[in-house]
Write a protein that binds this DNA or RNA. Structure first.
Length: 301
DNA sequence: ATCCAGGCCCGAT
DNA sequence: ATCGGGCATGGA
């Protein structure tokens, strides 16, 4: 019934969930060693939700072996050997070894494309706690109740179909502000481009090239380079994506450029993709974490 | 109170 | 092509 992951080094759920790529999860971290209050996590993917407890030997998934293999193994990208990727990245830039060592076990999740599209449209000019609040609210309002885990009612994120009839004012009522019209456009896009949204986990790899997919996403009002890159990386597992945000700008201006260079986001994205190639997305995640920690310390002085 | 948050659109150069 | 103002909301 339960599936046990032994290798905690290959997977760090806490770091992965807090890395800014996912906004719908639950987590309870206890600082005590009380056996009755182990750390636990709730992962959500489409109509699935699973309780994961942290045991001495590894993470215990409270679901069937079949569900684990079919859903969570995939969701957590466990089929990829991150050590190999890490080695490639360190070979390209040895300075990232610190960031990798501090963030070993972070994985790029394979989340639902439509959820990523809506989530990252919402994310613009918002802080992470706000984003979490907004996406959880829309799930409660328009998603489907899945199950209750440890007292938490878990809802699936609404499908495009479930948001089909929402108007701008409906989204404004949910406090999405000026993003409301973008969301209407995104839902319309999703309903018109069903082939770009997987219908089952099996057809995850949409049969379309990176460039074409990006072009398609950019056609949505409210989706720019950054949002498109995030959707492609976290929703379509396009690991050549290299999203540039304020944090990435700061860290890249320290590691690779200078403020005076006045590099544009486009310049930086091209640079990162060229430097890290197929590992750009994962490298970006390490850089991002590096920036969140190291730069914060540098600015403190 | 003012500022700004993992941006993007749009109109003016 | 590039620049800057505006945009909703809420937390610091």
């Amino acid at each position: 019934m339960y599936h046990l992951i032994i290798e905690k080094t290959d997977l760090d759920l806490k770091k992965t969930l807090m890395s800014g790529q996912v906004f719908r999860y639950e987590m309870d971290i206890n600082s005590t060693n009380d056996l009755e209050s182990r750390n636990y996590y709730i992962l959500i993917y489409r109509e699935y939700a699973v309780l994961v407890t942290e045991e001495e030997a590894g993470y215990l998934f409270h679901c069937s072996d079949t569900e684990f293999k079919r859903i969570w193994y995939h969701y957590l990208d466990l089929g990829r050997d991150y050590e190999t990727v890490n080695n490639r990245i360190v070979r390209i830039d040895p300075r990232l070894e610190i960031a990798i060592n501090n963030n070993r076990g972070i994985r790029i999740l394979r989340q639902d494309p439509f959820e990523m599209l809506i989530t990252f449209i919402i994310s613009q000019s918002k802080a992470i706690p706000q984003i979490r609040l907004l996406v959880n609210n829309i799930a409660k309002s328009y998603g489907t109740y899945t199950k209750t885990i440890r007292g938490e009612d878990i809802f699936s994120f609404p499908t495009a179909k479930q948001l089909e009839h929402l108007r701008e004012e409906d989204f404004r009522m949910l406090k999405f502000g000026y993003r409301a019209s973008y969301l209407v456009a995104a839902v319309k896009w999703a309903l018109e481009e069903p082939s770009l949204l997987m219908t089952s986990i099996d057809d995850y790899m949409v049969n379309i090239g990176d460039e074409q997919l990006k072009k398609n996403l950019l056609s949505i009002k409210g989706v720019g380079d950054k949002v498109a890159a995030c959707v492609m990386l976290f929703g379509y597992a396009r690991h050549k994506s290299f999203p540039i945000d304020v944090w990435m700008r700061r860290i890249m201006n320290v590691l690779y450029f200078h403020e005076e260079d006045k590099k544009t986001d486009k310049d930086m994205e091209a640079f990162g993709r060229c430097l890290f190639g197929e590992d750009a997305g994962i490298a970006q995640q390490y850089l991002f974490e590096y920036g969140r920690v190291e730069l914060k310390l540098m600015n403190k002085k």
